Simulated scan of single mutants.
Amino acid sequence: MRGTRFIAVAALAAGGLLVAGLPASAADRDGFGHRGATVQELARGWHPGHGPKPPTAGEPTTVAEHLAGPLTFDVDGRGTLYVGQAFAGNLVRVVPGQPPEEIAPSSGTDIAAVSTFMGAVTWSHRRAAEGDIGEAEESFLQRRGRDGVVTSVDLLAFERAANPDGAVEYSFTDLDPACAALVPPELAPYTGAVDSHAYGSLMLPGVTYVADAGANALLKVDRSGQVSTVAVLPPVPVEVTAEIAGAIGLPACVVGHEYNLEPVPTDVELGHDGWLYVSTLPGGPEDGSLGPIGSVYKVNPWTGR
C-alpha cells in the first residue's frame, strides 16, 4: 500500500456474543490447517436455519480494559478472547473472569490478523521502515498450536517473489498528456509496490486465508506453510469532482475523470455459501470526502473469481 495510512475495522463492543461451537480436534500437528472437516461442511453448518439463531445484541459488557490499540480479535469456541494490540505490539488472551495474559510478547511490531480454530490461534506481525505507513521490512503469519508451539510463515518473502498486484496500475485512467503533466507527482501512475501487511486471517480445515492489505490480495497458506494467491482485489475507481480537485489541489482538467485507488483488503470471512467475503478500506483520505469507497467482495475460493 502506498502513500496512505489505514486503520482497522475490528473495533467492536457487544454483549451476549454467541460463538458456534466446533468439533474438538486431535493433537495439533497440522501446521496452518486442520484435518477432519471441509470448508463446505463448515459452511453448511453455519447456513441460516441450520444451527443457532443469529445473536441478538444485549447490554454491552466490558471484558478487558487498558488495551493499547485492540484493533483485531477473535473468540474461540470456549469463549476465550484473543486480542491483537497494534500499538503495544503483542497478543493477549482473555479467559472469561480472568485478567489478560500475554501469549505473544511485544516486539515493537504491528499485530493483526487474529483468528482461531480448534484450539489454535493465528496472528500476523509486521515491522515497517517508517511506522505503520512505510513498506514492510518484516511480515510474518504466526500460529500457536494447542501444544504451545509457534510456527511462522514469511509473507514478505512471498510478496517479494510474486508481488500479486505488481502489474496493476493505480492512477488516473484517461487523462490526455497535457493534463497528466499537471498532476502532482504523488498522484502519478504507479504499479503495486512490494509490501505486505496481513490484516485479517481465517483459519479453516487444511488452509488459512489472509487478507493482505499491503499486497492488495487474498492469500492462501496451506498445511505445509506454502503461500499462494487466491485473488488480487480490483482497483477502486473514484470520479474526481470539482470539490475533490479543489480540496487536494488538483488541476481543473481532472474533474470528471476517474482515479484508481488501491483496494486495501482488511478482513476475510467464510460465508454460509462456502465463498469468502473480503472487506476493503481503499487508499486515500479516510474522512469520507471521496464518498463511500469501502466494499465487501465475494470471492470464489476455488477459482479466485
Rank of each mutant, 00 (worst) to 15 (best):
A104W: 06
S106H: 05
S107E: 15
S107C: 05
S107Y: 03
T109A: 08
D110K: 02
D110W: 01
D110L: 13
D110R: 05
A112S: 07
A113V: 12
S115T: 11
T116E: 13
F117K: 07
G119Q: 09
G119E: 01
A120I: 10
V121S: 01
T122W: 08
W123K: 08
W123E: 03
W123D: 10
H125K: 04
H125P: 03
R126I: 11
R127M: 10
R127A: 10
A128Y: 06
A129R: 03
D132T: 05
I133F: 08
G134F: 06
G134I: 01
E135G: 13
E135S: 14
A136N: 08
E137K: 11
E138N: 07
E138Q: 12
F140H: 10
F140M: 07
Q142D: 13
Q142H: 15
R143H: 11
R143P: 02
R144P: 11
R144L: 14
G145C: 06
G145M: 10
G145Q: 08
G148A: 01
V149D: 01
V149K: 12
T151P: 03
V153N: 07
L155F: 10
L156E: 05
A157K: 08
F158R: 00
A162I: 14
N163Q: 14
N163C: 14
P164D: 00
P164K: 02
P164V: 07
G166K: 08
A167P: 02
V168H: 02
Y170H: 13
S171W: 00
F172W: 07
T173F: 01
T173C: 04
T173N: 09
L175H: 04
L175T: 10
D176E: 12
D176C: 12
P177K: 14
P177H: 05
P177I: 12
C179D: 00
C179M: 02
A180T: 13
A181M: 08
L182P: 06
L182C: 14
L182W: 04
L182V: 12
L182S: 15
P184I: 09
P184G: 09
P185G: 03
P185W: 03
E186A: 01
L187T: 06
L187V: 07
P189S: 03
G192W: 12
G192V: 10
A193N: 15
